[in-house]
Amino acid sequence: MNITDNKLSRRVILQGAGALALVGLGNLPFGAPVLAAANDKYPEDAFKQKSDADAIKALYGKTAETSDKIKLDAPEIAENGGVVPVSMTTTLADVSSIAFVVAENPIVLVAAYKIPAGTVPAVANRIKMAKTSKVTVLVEAGGKLYRTDKEVKVTVGGCGG
């Protein structure tokens, strides 16, 4: 489950190439080339998991504790499972990552967002829901993982086309 190795090597290669290109152009390479992006590999494995516990483990490698400092805004009833507006905010400090999981979807992980320092820990997006399900938002803050859940009833599933 350790994805660090791959992503580092890819990053190093890319940074190396970037630095070379810049030198070639007669520019000095930046002192700290896009550091936050050291983390930018697509979490392929997490996007294959079929249970919320497995997806959380694949993405973060730890379990989440429920927090009342996260506010998850989702409709009680979604008439169209193909487009369910979901948003979240949190008062937790040092947020580094936010993810949305729909337990009853065939692939449970919907989105994972990296939040660099200086970015407000609040996201709105529109997700698909196959059927009535628990919707979970995960927040990684200060190295710990927190969650809040909400049940959303779906009257027409988002996978029927």
């Binding site: 697509y42 979490p43 919907v110 994972a112 967002y113 970015t119 698909k128």
Partner: peptide
């Protein structure tokens, strides 16, 4: 510098919308 990075699966709705702030 990146201010927001999204990793998405097929569970994001068609013609995706996202909102954030920095």
């Amino acid at each position: 510098k990146p201010v927001f990075l999204a990793d998405w699966g097929g569970g994001i709705s068609k013609d995706p919308y996202v909102k954030f702030a920095f």
